[in-house]
């Protein structure tokens, strides 16, 4: 497994009060994304565990794009990757932020 770490300056903090959110599933071409809160509201930390080695540049681009476009500040994100394509990764990250920002039931 290859483990990649990203610690990115995040202009917009995530809102809401949920402590965590989980989206996706570890399957071929898919991934799971676990989002939790950190106490650094202007950073987004992402850890990726993937069996597809050698795609650091791609993950770099996808995570940077995500943090630039979404409210990702103060989030600690862990990803288990089953070899997902970049558009699937972007989709899951967006779903994850939406879920952690949802009002608590």
């Amino acid at each position: 497994m290859e483990i990649l770490h990203f610690d990115i300056a995040a202009p917009t903090p995530a809102t809401g009060t949920r402590a965590m959110a989980l989206v996706g599933v570890v399957a071929s071409g898919n991934l799971e994304v676990l989002l939790e809160r950190s106490d650094v509201s202007d950073r987004c930390v992402i850890e990726v565990t993937t069996a597809a080695h050698g795609f650091r540049d791609l993950w770099d681009a996808v995570t940077a794009d995500f943090v630039a476009r979404r409210a990702a500040g103060g989030l600690r994100i862990a990803i288990n990757d089953g070899g997902a394509r970049p558009d699937t990764v972007s989709l899951r990250l967006a779903q994850g932020v939406r879920m952690i920002e949802e009002p608590e039931a």
Binding site: M1, L22, V26, E32, L34, T49, T50, A51, N80, D81
Partner: peptide
């Protein structure tokens, strides 16, 4: 699973 280089799920 890591013995087989397979991704885990949380």
């Amino acid at each position: 699973l890591s013995i087989f280089d397979l991704p885990a799920q949380f």
